[in-house]
Design a protein around this nucleic acid. Structure first.
Lengths: 152, 152
DNA sequence: CTTGGTGCAAATCGTTTGCATTAGC
DNA sequence: GCTAATGCAAACGATTTGCACCAAG
């Protein structure tokens, strides 16, 4: 059933009068099977392993398309690089990001979401989306001595 | 007392064996009096009004310095542009960002912070910093009809 | 066969850096 | 005077775009 996502894509493309191409399907497959949080560069490199001709431009264009199709979500953490995440549609979640090893942990917390709403209400603000990121040290890294400090 | 910040800067510079220059003081003054959340470009434009010779490079270099001196904080919202905020040192706060007019509202919420800690603890994660941004419509914008939709 | 898609390279945007010149200390 | 700071322009890294060619419908 590796094609569930690809079917979803085909459906989306057909609906928009767009074309289903070898590249788009390849990119989506690689993206889906790779796990998550891939930068365009990482994704391009992976894709090139199977299909060397596919270039950055196509990957970027395809990822934008997948975002519109609801198959991918764009995330931009503090390093300024956009990363793509698969299937973030099923329930919003936030992130713990390890500043030492780069590990990304996802979490959901309804209480926090509720409090956000109440803050918004106080400010007569209508929330469309939000972003919560906790930066710090993950369980693996917090024990370690600072052999190579991240603080430059 | 416009010079409180400038004094702080001089102190910092002296302590580091760095030099106090016309440009640095100018940039800081403009930055402080401008209110907050200025991008490098906005700041440079403002600075140039008084002192046309000052270039982007100096502004960037100076802002980095001010960050180190604790006089400015760097923020990067979703548009990928870095903005600088004055004096964010006095208590952490988060942001409501209007997607229509760009207005930025600051808020603090201890309950949310506490919940963040508990999430972190569950994941054996040590939080060093965090970022919470709520995107949506501010009170001015939410009433308006969608004459010019932001959704391209 | 018509329109959208691709690949490449050139362009763009925000930011950084090298270097010769200038100015604090 | 010595060293750090400036200004400019060129360099950068991530992303976007123009265009001639290619392929899906």
């Amino acid at each position: 059933m590796k094609n569930k996502a690809n079917e979803q894509l085909s459906e989306f493309l057909a609906g928009q009068g767009l074309k289903s191409t070898r590249q788009r399907n390849r990119i989506l497959s690689v993206f889906v099977s790779a796990g998550r949080h891939l930068s365009a560069e990482e994704l391009t490199l992976l894709v090139k392993k199977t299909d060397a001709g596919i270039g950055y431009a196509t990957v970027y264009r395809t990822m934008k398309l997948l975002s519109e199709a609801g198959l991918a979500h764009e995330r931009r953490f503090e390093d300024g690089v956009t990363r793509f995440e698969y299937n973030a549609s099923e329930g919003h979640h936030d992130h713990l990001i390890c500043t030492r090893c780069g590990r990304i942990i996802e979490f959901e917390n309804e209480q926090i979401e509720a409090l956000q709403q109440s803050v918004a209400k106080k400010n007569r603000f209508l929330v469309q989306s939000h972003k919560l990121e906790l930066y710090g040290l993950c369980s693996n890294c917090r024990g370690k001595r600072k052999s190579t400090p991240d603080v430059r």
